[in-house]
């Protein structure tokens, strides 16, 4: 009597877990990186669907005051120049995306990340004043600064896909292990409940 029921239960569980294999968790992901003078980012659901035309807020990570609001485009991408206040006070930015139907994702972009990428490549690092220095060496040092700036820019551009990959890697994907683990938990709980109830039943039957 009981055996076919349990068999059906197992059949259903196995069926469902195979049905679900190619799917992924349902969550809104945000990731963001600093490019040359701008902050870029993307918002997408973990199934891969882009979050289109969704408001993006850049907040101070500590006080949670919103410094800037923008929208994602048709491909779920967004970009903005770091707000003045954030640059001056070297604030860590918490970038949050909310879809209005209960989904929310966030990403922390530290001040170091966007300030190093945004620092002005031309001349700012070379304060004027020591005019008496030998002309030749001055030219050399300017050259070095210029080279440094170019390298930084190029490196930034080259690193964007790498940063993107790293950001994507932060997302935890649900695998077979998670699914089976969860089902195992549920079966275990059912077992505990069954044990308690059978104990109760025994007690009442011996009492009565």
């Amino acid at each position: 009597m009981n055996r076919p029921r349990i068999l059906t239960a197992l059949l259903f569980a196995v069926l469902f877990s195979f049905f679900a294999l190619p799917a992924q968790a349902h969550k809104l992901n945000v990731f963001s990186w600093a490019g040359d003078k701008k902050i870029y980012g993307e918002a997408f659901f973990s199934g891969g669907r882009k979050a289109k035309n969704v408001p993006v807020h850049a907040q101070d990570a500590e006080s949670h005051t919103t410094l800037l609001t923008t929208l994602t485009d048709e491909e779920g991408k967004f970009q903005f120049t770091p707000p003045q206040q954030a640059v001056q006070q070297k604030l860590n930015l918490l970038i949050t995306v909310e879809t209005g139907d209960g989904h929310r994702g966030e990403w922390l972009l530290t001040a170091d990340e966007y300030l190093s990428a945004a620092s002005d490549p031309t001349g700012a690092a070379q304060p004027p004043g020591e005019e008496s220095a030998i002309k030749e060496s001055a030219i050399k040092s300017v050259d070095i600064e210029a080279v440094r700036a170019i390298v930084r820019q190029e490196l930034n551009r080259e690193l964007i896909p790498v940063k993107r990959h790293l950001a994507e890697g932060r997302e935890k994907k649900a695998g077979l292990r998670d699914i089976l683990g969860g089902i195992g938990c549920i079966i275990g709980l059912a077992g505990i409940l069954a044990w308690f109830q059978s104990k109760k039943k025994k007690k009442t039957s011996t009492d009565g």
């Binding site: 029921r5 349990i6 239960a9 259903f12 569980a13 469902f16 877990s17 049905f19 679900a20 799917a23 992924q24 968790a25 349902h26 659901f45 199934g47 669907r49 879809t99 139907d101 989904h103 649900a174 699914i179 969860g182 089902i183 549920i186 079966i187 709980l189 059912a190 409940l193 069954a194 109830q197």
Partner: peptide
């Protein structure tokens, strides 16, 4: 108990089945 556990598992796993239709991301 068994039906409850079975349907709880079904609900748990069903959340991973995405429906790739319509504007949003739903399951």
């Amino acid at each position: 108990i068994m039906p409850v556990a079975l349907l709880s598992s079904a609900f748990f796993v069903a959340g991973l089945v995405h429906v790739p239709l319509g504007p949003g991301s739903v399951h």
